[in-house]
Design a protein around this nucleic acid. Structure first.
Lengths: 262, 262
DNA sequence: ATAATTTTCCGTAAGGCATACGGAGTTTAA
DNA sequence: TTAAACTCCGTATGCCTTACGGAAAATTAT
C-alpha cells in the first residue's frame, strides 16, 4: 500500500535536519515549511485525536488549501510518522542520574508524561515503523539507563521493552479513563440513570462477591472507578522489584563462577 | 455525543441473554438476529481491522442493505461495544489451578491469546466502557486468581490491573510487529533498499554505540528486529517476581504483628 | 532577454464512510 | 377492519483521502 518512492521521501524528511535540503531551487517558494506542517499536525491531533485528524484541518490551520499539503508530505500516514518523531524529540532526554532504579523510573516517567501530553501517540498504528532521528536517540538513551549493571545485551533490550510495554498499557488505560470523564457528551448522572435500573435487574446480590467487595474498597479509596496514576506507580514498583531479583540472580551467578565484582 | 436512550438500549442488548427479549411483537419479523449481527461484525473486524470496519460490510455479510443494520443496533460504536463483550465470553474462563503464580500466568495468557485472536480489541476506544455480562465475569475471575494470598482488597485490584496493563502493552507491540511483516504492501527488501542509503549517510559509525551493540545481539538471537512472544514471557516473569516480593513483605508484616499464618 | 524547466498551489472529481429522515410494506393488537 | 408498530431500505448530507491536471511563479539554459 506504500510506494517505495514515498518511503525514501519520508526518510529524507525525517532526517531533514541532518541531511539539509538538497532540492533544486526552481519554482515558487513554499509558503510555509515542513516543520510548520508537522507542528500544525501535532496541534490538530492534540486537539481532536487521531481519528478526527484530517489533512483539511492541517491545511486550514496553515491558511493553505487542502491539496497543497501534499506538496509538503506524501500523505496522511507519512505525516503522522513525522509527527511522532517530532514529538519524541520535543522534551530532551535528561542525563541519567542515581542508581539503576532511579534511572529506569525516569525512563518510564518520560514515556508516561509524553503519552499524556500527546494522547494520540498510542493511537498510531503505522504499517512500518519509521526510523527517525529522535526515535534512535530515544532507544540509545533508554539502553544507557541499564548499561553497566551486569545484564547481558539481550536482557538489556528485554528490560527496556518490558518497561515500555507496561508504560504504554498503563498510559492507555489512563487516557481512556480521562476521555471517559472529559468528552463523552453524557454526564455521569445520565450514565447512571440509564445503567442503574438495568444493572439492578441483572445483577442479583451476591452474584459477583469478589468484584463487589474489591470494587467497593477501590471506589472508596479512589473516589472513582480507577486511579490510573496510582496504578502506574504500583505496577512500576513491582516491575522494578522484579528487575532487582534478576540483577541479584545475575550477581550471584557471577560470584559462583568466580567473577570479580566492584 | 451519545444519546441516553441509545445507552439504555445498548445495555439491554448487552444483557439480552439475562433479560430476554421484552419487545412488542408487532411488525415484520427480523430477518436475522442481533447475535448474527454481532458475529458478522466480529468476522469483519477480524478480517479487516477496526479502521476498515464498516456498517456496509456487516450488512453485506448478512445479505441486508446498509440501513437495516440500524434496526438491530443503535450505531457503529455501540455495535463495537457489543462485539467486545461477545469476544470476552468466547473462550470460557478455566477454573483456577495451582499456586498464585500459575493462576496469574493463566490470567495473563488468556488475555494475550484473546488479543491475538481478535487484534482489533486493542484498537477499541469507546467513550464509555460498557458494563456487559462477560466483562463482569472476567473481572470476577481475575480477582479469584489472587484471592486468599494475604493481599488487601486494594492490592488485589492493583495486581490485576498491572497484569492487564502489561499484557495489553505487550500484545500491542506483538500485533503491530505482526502487521508490519504481513500487510504492509512493501517487501522487506524494498524497505531496506529505500532506507539503507539514507541510514548509512545519516548514522556515522559509532553514533549509537549501545543501540548498535544491543541491536546486533538482539537481531542475531531473534532473527528479527524483535521477538514479541519472548518479550511477553520475560516481562511477565519479572512482574510475577515483583508480586512475590510484595507477598513476602506482606507475610513478614503479618508475622511481626503476630497474625497467624496457614 | 527569452525560452525551457521545475515546482507550488489548488480546483475538481472519484470513491469511501456514518447516519438522519422518511416511505413502503408487513404483522399484530384493538 | 382499522390503527399501530415495526422492518427494510432509498436518498441525501456532509465528512474523509487522494489521483489528476492546470495555472502561475521562479529559476536555469540559451
Amino acid at each position: 500500500m506504500e510506494k517505495p518512492e514515498d518511503l525514501a521521501r519520508t526518510m529524507t524528511l525525517l532526517w531533514r535536519r541532518t541531511l539539509g535540503s538538497p532540492q533544486g531551487t526552481r519554482g515558487p517558494k513554499q509558503r510555509v515549511s515542513v516543520d510548520e506542517v508537522i507542528r500544525a499536525g501535532i496541534a490538530v491531533a492534540d486537539a481532536d485525536g487521531l481519528p478526527a485528524f484530517s489533512m483539511r484541518k492541517v491545511a486550514d490551520r496553515l491558511g493553505l488549501k487542502l491539496m497543497s499539503i501534499y506538496t509538503y508530505v506524501p500523505g496522511r500516514s507519512e505525516l503522522i510518522g513525522l509527527m511522532v518523531d517530532e514529538v519524541i524529540g520535543e522534551v530532551p532526554h535528561p542525563p541519567h542520574r542515581g542508581d539503576w532504579r532511579a534511572r529506569l523510573e525516569g525512563v518510564a516517567r518520560h514515556q508516561w508524561d509524553e503519552c499524556h501530553r500527546h494522547p494520540w501517540l498510542l493511537q498510531v498504528e503505522s504499517s512500518r515503523p519509521w526510523i527517525g532521528p529522535h526515535g534512535c536517540d530515544r532507544y540509545e538513551w533508554q539502553l544507557a539507563a541499564v548499561e553497566g549493571e551486569g545484564l547481558s545485551d539481550l536482557d538489556m533490550d528485554q528490560v527496556i521493552t518490558m518497561i515500555a510495554n507496561f508504560t504504554a498499557g498503563a498510559a492507555r488505560s489512563s487516557i481512556l479513563a480521562r476521555r471517559t470523564v472529559e468528552d463523552s457528551g453524557i454526564s455521569d448522572v445520565e450514565w447512571w440513570e440509564a445503567n442503574a435500573p438495568i444493572l439492578e435487574k441483572v445483577m442479583p446480590p451476591g452474584a459477583y462477591p469478589l468484584s463487589g467487595r474489591v470494587g467497593t474498597a477501590a471506589g472508596e479509596e479512589y473516589n472513582a472507578v480507577s486511579d490510573p496514576d496510582r496504578s502506574f506507580r504500583f505496577g512500576l514498583d513491582r516491575l522494578l522489584d522484579g528487575v532487582e531479583v534478576l540483577l541479584r540472580a545475575n550477581r550471584r551467578e557471577h560470584r559462583i563462577r568466580g567473577v570479580e565484582e566492584p
